[in-house]
Amino acid sequence: MTSKAQTRREALLLLLKNGDEPLTGGILAQQLGVSRQIIVQDIALLRETGASIVGTSQGYVLESDSRKVTRSVEVKAEARNDRCEASNDSGLCERTFKVHHDPAQTRDELKTIISAGGRVVNVSISHRAYGFLSAPLAIETEEDISRFINDIESGKSAPLSTATSGYHYHLIAADDEEALETIGRALADKGYLAPLLPHEMPK
């Protein structure tokens, strides 16, 4: 018997196969009636089973279709202004950054993002045994950072990223694409930004 999740993932693949252009996680989530986080998890599972799903700056495509949409993506990118198409209900732009650091640098990493105009929506890891794990953060101010650090320390817990040797992802929201680019440069300058591997999703 086919499960509901399996049926949804098959439908996701069909949408990508029939799409004339890249489809964002938000669009896929809307068409399939689930959250965007579910879409990210589905894509990770599909990739593990061999689906060649490629993440581009404009959304997801199947690898076999990536070449034919490349020029279309480039043209659209040239035509866009400095504000991205809203990624969520709040009207903010969002992008996933892969980062790497030790636990002692967590406060500085979060402060770097906030100081550059970002909001840390969540933290995620891709674990070889446990799969893709994500937890909401909703960090927008230095007070939020202190609260998060205190919660970790008072509970004698460790950040989620310790399960993957310091590698993790943050979904970051900002007012526009320029702010996201600034955040990326700030993280890179601090040595926190890690390169995305070919199979890893963007955002």
Rank of each mutant, 00 (worst) to 15 (best):
A138V: 11
F132G: 06
A138K: 13
F148N: 12
L137G: 00
S146H: 13
E143Y: 08
S134W: 07
T141N: 10
S157C: 11
T162C: 09
G155S: 05
A135P: 06
N150I: 12
F132K: 11
D144S: 03
L137T: 04
L133D: 08
S134H: 07
D144F: 08
D151W: 00
L160P: 14
L160M: 14
E142R: 00
R147V: 04
L133E: 10
F148M: 11
E142S: 01
N150S: 14
L133I: 15
I149G: 05
D151C: 03
N150Q: 09
S161H: 15
F148K: 09
A135M: 07
T141C: 05
E140T: 08
E142F: 04
A135Q: 04
I139K: 02
E142W: 02
E143F: 09
T141E: 01
P136H: 06
S154F: 14
P136T: 02
I149F: 00
A158S: 15
G155Y: 08
E153A: 15
A138R: 14
P136M: 01
F132Y: 15
S146M: 12
E142N: 04
P159V: 00
K156Q: 11
A135V: 12
G155H: 05
A138Y: 11
E153D: 10
I149M: 13
I149K: 03
D144W: 02
P136C: 07
D151Y: 08
I139F: 04
E153C: 09
D144M: 05
I152P: 04
I139Y: 00
P136L: 07
L133N: 09
K156F: 12
E143W: 07
S154W: 10
L137K: 15
L137P: 08
S146W: 09
F148H: 14
I145W: 02
F132A: 11
E142Q: 03
F132N: 14
P136R: 01
S134F: 10
D144Q: 10
D151L: 03
L133M: 13
L133C: 06
I152R: 14
T141P: 01
P159G: 01
T162E: 05
D144I: 05
I145G: 06
P159S: 00
T141F: 03
I139S: 03
F148L: 13
E140K: 08
I152W: 01
A138C: 13
G155L: 06
S146I: 12
F132C: 11
A158F: 12
L137S: 08
S154G: 09
S134C: 11
P159H: 07
F132M: 09
I145M: 05
E143C: 01
S134V: 15
E143R: 09
L137W: 04
S154V: 13
I149H: 02
I145P: 06
D144P: 15
G131V: 01
P136I: 08
L133W: 11
L133T: 12
I149S: 01
R147C: 05
N150V: 13
E143G: 04
T162K: 10
S157N: 14
A138G: 07
G131N: 06
K156A: 08
I139Q: 04
P159A: 00
E153H: 13
I152G: 00
E153K: 13
P136W: 00
I145L: 07
T162N: 04
R147E: 06
I152H: 03
P136S: 04
E142L: 00
G155V: 10
E140F: 07
T162H: 07
L137N: 04
